[in-house]
């Protein structure tokens, strides 16, 4: 390896530490801003009902083997019969619901807000780092890397003779961006910004596909092979109770 660079302690005091602290603080700020901006609209009664029905059907599916087959069949009919079963959705009605969802402007608005609250602070920070700290060698990674990583780690300094393990300030920003996720999940609880976007995407998909997911649940309930897991439960209970009495 080449001879060591001598880095000024002023770089540590005025670049490395402030940059890291600012990244943490901005993460915290973003969390609270997105929490503030989260509009609490009243949930649609119909969508909520459908979601609850799906959850009930799933519970039945996972607990199917713990009830006698007669009870299971009765419940299955209750969910899946073609006349008034809870999971059965008539064709035209399904279409209607989907169209209604698409025309709802609130959802698009919400998504926009979420995306903006992610994007704006990030681009602002990046611009800030670029403006104040461009071209510093800010840190040194304590392990050797190959030349391939030069573009990634020395973004912003165009010197091909510097050892690859030296990190420019702009790349230190990127390292922070990815590495602080764990810290955020510790200090802000599970639901930090990253998880939030994922959950939002799931919710959106859920809303759009309510009719389809009902149909999927119906099919999977229909094909369940029922096999009662506790056929001798009563005898066993009697045994235990008798033992207790004695």
């Amino acid at each position: 390896m080449a001879e060591d660079l001598v880095l000024d302690t002023a770089i540590r005091d005025w670049v490395l530490i402030p940059l890291s602290v600012v990244m943490v603080l901005i993460g915290v700020l973003r969390y609270f801003v997105s929490k503030l901006m989260r509009s609490s609209q009243l949930p649609d009664a119909k969508a909520l009902k459908e979601g609850q029905v799906i959850i009930r059907a799933r519970n039945l599916k996972s607990g199917a083997n713990f009830i006698p087959s007669k009870s299971f069949r009765a419940r299955r009919v209750y969910f899946t019969n073609e006349e008034n079963g809870l999971l059965y959705v008539p064709k035209d009605q399904a279409q209607n619901a989907q169209a209604q969802m698409f025309s709802d402007p609130n959802m698009a608005m919400d998504m926009m807000k979420k995306n903006l609250s992610m994007l704006i602070p990030q681009s602002l920070t990046f611009a800030w780092v670029n403006f104040f700290f461009s071209g510093f060698v800010a840190a040194k990674i304590p392990f050797p890397l190959t030349q391939r990583f030069r573009a990634m780690l020395q973004n912003g300094i165009d010197l091909s003779t510097v050892d690859v393990s030296y990190v420019s300030s702009r790349s230190w920003y990127f390292l922070n961006l990815f590495g602080l996720r764990g810290l955020f999940s510790l200090i802000l609880g599970e639901e930090n910004a990253m998880d939030d976007t994922q959950r939002m995407m799931q919710m959106g998909g859920f809303g759009f596909d309510a009719a389809r997911s009902l149909a999927v649940e119906k099919d999977s309930l229909d094909i369940i092979q029922h096999d009662w897991a506790l056929p001798k439960m009563e005898q066993r209970a009697e045994e235990v109770l008798r033992k207790l009495l004695r």
């Binding site: 540590r12 990674i141 304590p142 390292l175 990815f178 590495g179």
Partner: peptide, 14 residues
Amino acid sequence: LMSFVLFWTFAYDL
């Protein structure tokens, strides 16, 4: 691992 590398680098540099 990512968090580990970040804090390792940070403390090592300081």
